[in-house]
C-alpha cells in the first residue's frame, strides 16, 4: 500500500522528558562490552572535560526510536510495522548525551517513498535538553517490505 505523501513534513509534538540515569548508561555500556571509563567513571569523564559521565554514541537511539513510535503507530500513515526493517541510521551531535540530562524528542517525517512495493519512511528526531539546547539529531530510515506475491 502506497503511503500518503501529504505526511512529508509532518511534525509530532515533543515527547515528555526522558531522564538519563548513570546506571542506565552503565548498563548500556556493559551490554555492548565497552569499558571506556567516560561512560562509568565521573572523574574520568571530567578529565575529558565533561560535567558528568557521558553515554555511548548510539545510546540515544532508544529514546528517539520510542519517540518515532508516534509516527510508526500513526493509523493515518498506515505503515505495516510487522514488515518494517531498519534501513539506515545516522546521528549528528552537538554534544554527547550525559547523566542527568532531561531529553525531549521532536519527530518529523522527512520523506515518504514507495520503491518496488516497499514503503520507505525517513524520520528525523531532534533531541533537546531541559534548557532547550540541541543535543543530537537522529535520522532513521524504516523500510516496510512488500508482502510476498504483491
Amino acid at each position: 500500500m502506497a503511503l500518503d505523501q501529504s505526511f512529508v513534513g509532518r511534525t509530532y509534538p515533543p515527547t515528555p522528558a526522558y531522564e538519563v540515569g548513570r546506571e542506565k548508561i552503565r548498563e548500556f555500556a556493559e551490554a555492548i562490552g565497552d569499558a571506556n571509563p567516560a561512560y562509568t567513571d565521573t572523574e574520568a569523564a571530567k578529565a575529558l572535560g565533561h560535567p558528568d559521565v557521558i553515554a555511548p554514541p548510539t545510546f540515544v537511539f532508544a529514546i528517539t526510536f520510542k519517540a518515532a513510535g508516534a509516527v510508526i503507530e500513526d493509523p493515518q500513515l498506515g505503515l505495516d510495522y510487522s514488515r518494517v526493517v531498519h534501513g539506515d541510521q545516522k546521528f549528528a551531535y552537538t554534544r554527547p548525551v550525559r547523566a542527568g540530562d532531561r531529553l525531549s524528542v521532536t519527530s518529523t517525517i522527512e520523506a515518504v517513498k514507495s520503491l518496488a512495493g516497499n514503503d520507505i519512511v525517513d524520520i528525523r528526531g531532534e533531541v533537546h535538553d531541559a534548557s532547550g539546547e540541541h543535543v543530537v539529531t537522529a535520522w532513521t530510515k524504516l523500510v516496510s517490505r512488500a508482502p510476498e506475491g504483491a
Binding site: H86, F91, A92, Y93
Partner: peptide
C-alpha cells in the same frame, strides 16, 4: 580517540 565525544557524526546502512 579516547574521548567518545570526538564523534560528531555517525551513520550506517544495515
Amino acid at each position: 580517540t579516547g574521548d567518545p565525544a570526538a564523534v560528531v557524526e555517525y551513520g550506517v546502512r544495515f
